[in-house]
Design a protein around this nucleic acid. Structure first.
Lengths: 341, 341
DNA sequence: GTTTTTTGTGCAATCGTTTGTATTTTTGTA
DNA sequence: TACAAAAATACAAACGATTGCACAAAAAAC
């Protein structure tokens, strides 16, 4: 059986669809009595408005596109959740796509979102992405784009980023205070803003303390496995006494490597991670890391998008919002009686 | 500037929109030459088909609704990811909603999905939900529903569930083999299929070994906090020597409680969890737990939905698919030299 | 009691595609 | 050259809601 439409309701009440439409929309130009009748009838017939038709006619949809590298990453899934928390009450729904860290899939996903005529896009780029043309095109087609975490300035619109610089700076400074000095930095591609900023923070802290860091920075060591390998190599060479990893997974691999070399954390070597993955507080030793507030970020991104859609921010004027981070000092870096700040 | 439509393309080529539509759809009734011309023009004008209009006309959308209690749960986010892996290549997109474990929000979300005329729904119920009317209504409105993990037989259509019974049975049997006998079971609401099945497995194993379990089953102890409290109480009363928790979070709380009482895991008390949360292999002691394959489940759910949409499964005929689970034996339960099976 | 204003509805076009049917053009054949 | 068959394209009506405008009825003003 067909779904009931406003036409069905109209017919069964002997009025026109336009009146039904207005009645359901709560338009004041329709009398109280018919509004009641329409609402009752709609309920009785189990009417569900057809958003598709409505969107087409209104020329705008209530769907927001969300594009992330991977839904199943702790950080991203929490951002999504936070975005939804803001956008749902505001009457929007989320069409979610993953890029799987591939530029090609990212572009495809953007196309899909545009084809679906989303009212706006909240996205974080794939690591691989260097060409941001597609995202720019979206804004040119009047679809506002809000970037978060992995952002690029070539794309107009608000950007919400973590305070990666300060987080890294605090982390490294904390290690230095703890008496570590040959601090290696394992990180991802420095072409990605997230990692370049953390790298900047690392350098700043090292330079400030007049410590040498040439040949102590290693790109492409961000997973547990690659972290393990690089750390194993460095520890064996006796070149370092601490690690600042740009991610917690690499930190886990690093700790493993240190243990496998018969050394202790933090007594022999300190380790600090980044992200505060859920396991960071559980592992042995508990991992000192930089906490990034995914909820805060999601809320900000959603609110920024709402402002852009509402015309409160001009498309041209792009702005960056920085979400504060926190250094969580735990066992993996507490060699001595160290001051937490 | 307005987005280009097939009408624009038609005009600029001196043909009709219908021909353009057919050309882009690859319809064989349009000549090779015009098809080429249309495709080129479309590319040149940056044409993006309007899926909204298309959906309206075709009476069906390419969007699948996905409804989960919480996106940011490890298990659910992985299922989502797996579903997307299957559905994306098949030309579908995912509209994702969360119920936040609330029946009311679950129903609202279902309404939203129906209003958006999704082609199908893949869902897992909120713990709270006891009234499944809304999900039934969806199938009555010809929107196929596939349930996974938290399912209910009142709702027609495929159900994909973990082998909770066997998982629990294996877990408890493993504890018994290890020499534990006063095994408590901390779990969630037994009104939820997931927990009732695990409970059944627990009972079966206990009965099989002629062990007493009256007053050893506790509902409402599923979080880290509630798990901690209940465990603390039981340990202090010297009533138990092992715990089978229906979730890993409760297991973490339990281990904490045992430690806080000055006892050791697994020497004094054994602990087995359920889910294999990402931290399970990292914590100390490493947690023995039942691994549920979220990817497998997602793939099956997506494929089931595709089959229903394709008419390969009658709506009436409901079927349950059981995803196998695996017991991962780790430190938290290995008191003696135990056989892993 | 007439005119003006207000209020409530109806009419009809529109959003951008799709698709059944009609029409034109092309091709093949006698 | 004519004519049927086949191929390519055009026409027009949907899909279901929204909305500017017209219009009737009721209320208010004179």
């Amino acid at each position: 059986m067909k779904r009931t439409t406003i036409i069905d309701i109209a017919r069964s009440l002997g009025i026109t669809p336009s009146t039904v439409s207005r009645a359901l929309a709560g338009n004041l130009r329709v009398s109280e009595s018919t509004r009641k009748r329409v609402q009752e009838k709609a309920l009785e017939m189990g009417y569900q408005p057809n958003i598709v038709a409505s969107s087409l006619r209104r020329g705008k949809s209530d769907t927001i596109g969300m594009l992330v590298p991977r839904i199943n990453r702790h950080f991203f899934s929490h951002v999504i959740s936070a975005v939804e928390e803001i956008l749902n009450p505001a009457g929007y729904n989320l069409l979610i796509c993953q890029s799987h860290e591939k530029s090609e899939l990212e572009n495809q996903a953007l196309q899909v979102l545009l084809k679906n005529r989303v009212a706006g896009i909240i996205m974080s780029h794939a690591m691989e992405t260097v060409d941001f043309e597609m995202a720019r095109k979206a804004t040119e087609e009047r679809v506002p784009v809000v970037q978060f975490d992995r952002v690029n300035k070539e794309v107009p619109g608000p950007r919400i980023v973590n305070d990666n610089f300060s987080g890294a700076y605090m982390a490294v400074k904390h290690l230095i205070r703890g008496g570590y000095s040959r601090i290696a930095h394992l990180t991802g591609s420095l072409g990605v803003n997230v990692y370049s900023e953390r790298h900047r923070g690392y350098r700043y802290a090292m330079e400030e303390a007049s410590l040498d860091f040439d040949e102590l920075v290693f790109e492409g060591a961000i997973t547990r496995e690659t972290g393990y390998e690089k750390a194993l190599q460095l520890v064996k060479q006796h070149r370092v006494d601490a690690f600042f990893c740009a991610g917690d997974f690499a930190s886990v691999g690093t700790i493993q490597a240190i243990h496998d070399c018969g050394l202790r954390v933090p007594e022999d070597m300190g380790v600090v991670g980044f992200a505060n993955e859920p396991f960071a507080g559980f592992i042995t030793p508990q991992l000192t890391t930089v906490e990034q507030n995914a909820y805060d970020m999601g809320h900000r991104a959603a609110n920024a998008l709402i402002r852009v859609i509402g015309g409160q921010i001009m498309t041209g004027m792009d702005q960056e919002e920085v979400v504060p981070v926190r250094l969580l000092v735990r066992e993996s870096s507490m060699r001595a009686t160290v001051n937490n700040k």
